[in-house]
């Protein structure tokens, strides 16, 4: 059994606020679907919180609804299986539903939430190991130790650098839908665009402050029909993406192409291009080149780094094909 921790399940944000007043930063951990949190705790015993705060009873975090100005709000607690079947999401932003339907396994999708996928912990083949494996090797930076098994230059004495890869499937899609996150913290509500949310640090991962939670995700629907997502993984189920690529193609008076990939770097990488002359072929080539240049895959996945790098361009083309783009 896991070591004991206190458990709280506030029924409103007000109650959560009062609870947080009496808790020290770093002594508590939020959980919603608990899939990533509990599996993380089981193999990472030194990260045990004193208190686990369950967010599942917060009704403020539930519900999917249309907002003004063609925007859609998805409550943070919406489960992935609910997103995959939600009629409103299927109609307005089918790509979000389709992406959610391909995350992990059916059992996990019945618990895991959209906010949990946005906040999913970065992965590395040296970090995501059993407790025994970690005890034999030394704990890495991400596990609270002072070594990186992946990059020799980041060994002891150097500043901690973690290159655990970002693995959320929904983040690249939501980034192309210009999503903003509605956050709640002890200081009240604030909004942050998803583009400004992630940081390149594999340990810190994002700009969420202590005590802050995501309450809702708002997406722009104006280009939702022009976004698709494709991913590479060993099995067609359960696995985190080795590479995942979302593409947005919008051809009006000018041509707009946006690519966002996940599973490679420590954060999702967004590439935006636009061209008035509608030279599609050159733009796609430029996007592939930029993606290849920015990708920094390391030996932390079943597929070799060079292969994953090449696959970004392949997946960009697969997405473009799905979007009806013809190469000549």
């Amino acid at each position: 059994m896991m070591p004991s921790f206190a458990y709280e399940r506030p029924r409103s944000l007000e109650e959560l606020g009062k609870l947080l007043e009496n808790l020290e930063a770093g002594s508590f951990l939020f959980s919603a679907g608990a899939t990533d949190v509990i599996s993380g705790l089981k193999s990472h015993p030194q990260s045990y919180p004193k208190t686990l705060i369950s967010l599942t009873a917060l009704s403020e975090l539930k519900g999917v609804r249309l907002l003004e100005k063609n925007r859609l709000s998805i409550g943070a607690l919406t489960k992935l299986s609910e997103i995959a079947e939600n009629a409103l999401i299927l109609k307005q932003a089918a790509v979000v539903a389709q992406t959610a339907a391909k995350i992990a396994s059916p059992q996990i999708r019945n618990r895991a939430t959209i906010a949990g996928n946005i906040l999913v912990n970065n992965r590395c083949s040296y970090f995501n190991q059993s407790r025994h494996n970690r005890l034999v090797h030394q704990f890495c930076f991400k596990a609270g130790g002072d070594i990186c098994h992946l990059i020799p230059a980041a060994r002891e004495g150097h500043s901690p650098l973690c290159r655990a890869r970002f693995v959320s499937d929904l983040a690249p899609v939501l980034l192309l839908l210009r999503a903003t996150l509605q956050l709640w913290g002890p200081d009240g509500y604030r909004k942050i665009s998803l583009e400004d949310f992630y940081t390149p640090d594999g340990i810190r991962r994002n700009n969420l402050k202590s005590g802050e939670i995501i309450t809702a995700i708002e997406t722009d629907l104006s280009c939702a029909k022009n976004v698709t997502y494709e991913k590479l993984r060993i099995r067609n189920t359960l696995d985190f993406p080795s590479v995942g690529v979302a593409v947005m193609l919008n051809v009006t008076e000018s041509m707009e192409l946006a690519v966002c990939y996940t599973g490679v770097n420590t954060h999702p990488v967004l590439i935006k291009l636009s061209d008035d002359r509608k030279n599609g072929k050159a733009m796609i080539q430029a996007a592939c080149d930029q993606a290849k240049k920015s990708a920094q895959p390391l030996r932390q996945d079943h597929f070799p780094p060079s292969y994953r790098k090449e696959m970004i361009a392949v997946l960009i083309h697969q997405n473009l094909q799905k979007l009806g783009w013809k190469n000549d």
């Binding site: 458990y7 399940r9 959980s31 608990a34 899939t35 509990i38 599996s39 686990l52 369950s54 059916p106 059992q107 996990i108 019945n110 618990r111």
Partner: peptide, 10 residues
């Protein structure tokens, strides 16, 4: 269906 190993019974 859910995974009972990842769900605190509480």
């Amino acid at each position: 269906p859910i995974l009972s190993c990842l769900l605190p019974v509480i």
